[in-house]
């Protein structure tokens, strides 16, 4: 039994999709322009801006560093966030609401304020390890995304199934892996993806904490825009779009979770 979608809804959806995708096409077109500066519509055709970006050690270094940083931050946030979300949703903890408020507060406070506060704190502590500073700073900002998403999964998980499994003799680790995990997995994955993207795209926290040896790609992009507004910037933007697309495809293939479930 298939539901029929009215033509009006199809048209509205097509228009919305067009509005979402059209801005992404602009940098793609500008990145192939054979001019010394950005023009739209593009003039000529060249892939030299992609070659220039890929051959640039600064761009490569920043990109790889951002990947490394986002991977570490995602791991740390999941390790901290999953038990925290489970604890806050499944047990009565004194001061639960206050705790949740504190954990989620980085979503309310402007990131630029969080960044300078962290810099001041690390300076007072005489703590100079830049990578660790960035990991802590990004984790503070990313953790709320994991906790929100994982908490929602735990709240929606059917406790009766766990009770039934336990009554039928399943030990706790079996209940956890075969009953709870399949129900909370989409939430954990969504939290992880959000966390990775927020860390990978972060500018305001990195602006205060990064240094010349630890220079994430958003900071690099900003400096390149200030250096010269040539099509290599559009090429970097296009590569980041391709990377995001690749990330979604890999998640779809490896974890087998469709986009509708991820968004739910």
């Amino acid at each position: 039994m298939t539901e029929t979608v009215s033509p009006a809804i199809r048209i509205v959806v097509a228009i919305i999709l067009l509005m979402v995708v059209a801005p992404l096409v602009v940098p793609l077109l500008m990145s192939i322009s054979d001019t010394a500066f950005i023009v739209f519509p593009p003039q000529g055709f060249t892939l030299k801006w992609y070659a220039a970006v890929l051959a640039n050690p600064e761009a490569r270094g920043s990109f790889l560093f951002s990947l490394e940083l986002a991977a570490i931050v995602t791991t740390v946030s999941l390790v901290l966030g999953i038990p925290c979300a489970a604890g806050l949703t499944r047990f009565k903890v004194p001061g639960q609401d206050i705790m949740l408020g504190i954990i989620l507060s980085p979503l309310i406070v402007p990131l630029i304020v969080t960044g300078i506060a962290l810099l001041q704190f690390f300076s007072m502590m005489n703590f100079r390890a830049t990578l660790l500073q960035l990991v802590i700073g990004h984790t503070v900002v990313c953790l709320p995304y994991v906790i929100r998403s994982v908490s929602a999964s735990f709240v929606l998980a059917n406790r009766n199934l766990e009770d039934a499994a336990a009554v039928l003799g399943a030990p706790p680790h079996v209940v956890a892996t075969r009953i709870v995990w399949p129900q909370v997995r989409p939430g954990i994955l969504a939290g992880g993806v959000f966390c990775f993207i927020v860390s990978f795209d972060d500018y305001p926290i990195s602006m205060w904490l990064a240094d010349g040896n630890h220079f994430p790609i958003p900071l690099y992009l900003y400096t390149v825009i200030e250096r010269s507004f040539d099509p290599s910037i559009a090429a970097i933007a296009s590569l980041m779009i391709f990377f995001a697309l690749l990330l979604v495809l890999v998640i779809e293939r490896v974890f087998g979770i469709n986009l509708a479930r991820l968004a739910s």
Binding site: I116, L119, Q120
Partner: peptide
Amino acid sequence: TAEEGFTLANVGKMRATKD
């Protein structure tokens, strides 16, 4: 070690690490 920034951010960094 060079950190790229701009005037207001650089002054902010000096203030935040003054002590």
